[in-house]
């Protein structure tokens, strides 16, 4: 189809689809007047039952914890996919390495980052990691949890990259270790679920005493799951960033010679 023909097809089709969608939306309760049986029930029972103050987290990890296992696996699979799709093939690899050596010869990009930025960057790593760990571990109490904290942890690695250089980042986080950590996090979630089956007789059953409301360890196995997810997400995003960086690493080196 020519682009013009495509537009002729798309215009009425999209109009029709939009009309359908809007028509559907008019059947929804007025904004702010929702009364969902499921949500109302959870809002009532979740805190007494699970002691975790953040109901979104107890829903994510306990009541609907199985969804989150699936979501974990989607992330895990996507990273496997990145490893597959961005792998360097034989021959290509040598090419890239030659180019890389070239870049080393040009004194690399180490000198292109100003010292001030480097010091600032290294200074930022610590707080970023602490923030990430904090968000992961306080998931049951306040907004946040394994996902959000995990991504923050992964960006700490990027800070290393911004501040220093790629080689330093690789030294901090060798790829096989990251891969193993990511896979372990994903597996750990499934295994904790299995623990529910073995200890409490039901897959994904919360087999640890929920503790008292407001304490860091409330929510039973929710903090454990948060840590598993944090590990997985941190590993996954670090790997994703590195896979993309692997591809872009030469850019900075070239920049000088242009």
């Amino acid at each position: 189809m020519s682009r013009r023909a495509r537009l002729w097809l798309l215009a009425p089709a999209l109009a029709g689809t939009m009309a359908l969608v809007v028509w559907g939306f008019t059947g929804l309760a007025d904004f702010g007047h929702f009364q969902g049986a499921y949500g109302n029930l959870l809002a009532k029972v979740a805190v007494p039952e699970r002691k975790a103050t953040d109901i979104v987290v107890s829903t994510t990890f306990d009541y609907r914890g199985f969804d989150t296992l699936g979501e974990e696996m989607i992330l895990f699979t996507a990273v496997l996919g990145l490893v597959v799709l961005l792998r360097e093939l034989r021959g290509e690899q040598e090419e890239e390495e030659e180019a890389h050596d070239d870049q080393e010869g040009h004194a690399g990009r180490e000198h292109r980052t100003s010292d001030a930025l480097r010091i600032f960057g290294f200074g930022m790593v610590g707080p970023t990691v602490v923030l990430g760990v904090y968000i992961v571990t306080h998931g049951t109490l306040t907004p946040g949890g394994g996902f959000q904290g995990g991504v923050v942890l992964a960006t700490a690695l990027l800070v290393v990259y911004l501040a220093g250089r790629y080689a330093a980042m690789r030294k901090v986080s060798p790829l096989p270790l990251l891969e193993a950590g990511e896979a372990t996090g994903a597996m750990a979630y499934g295994l904790i679920g299995l623990g529910g089956l073995i200890i409490a007789g039901m897959y994904m059953k919360n087999f640890i005493d929920p503790g008292t409301k407001g304490s860091l360890l409330s929510g039973g196995f929710i903090p454990l799951l948060n840590i598993a997810v944090g590990l997985e997400v941190a590993g996954a995003f670090s790997l994703a960033f590195q896979e993309f960086l692997d591809q872009t690493i030469l850019l900075r080196g070239d920049g000088g010679s242009e």
Partner: peptide
Amino acid sequence: APDVALSQIVIGSVG
């Protein structure tokens, strides 16, 4: 929805 907002910040506007 602060939980979602936090995710959105780290993923949608950074990641």
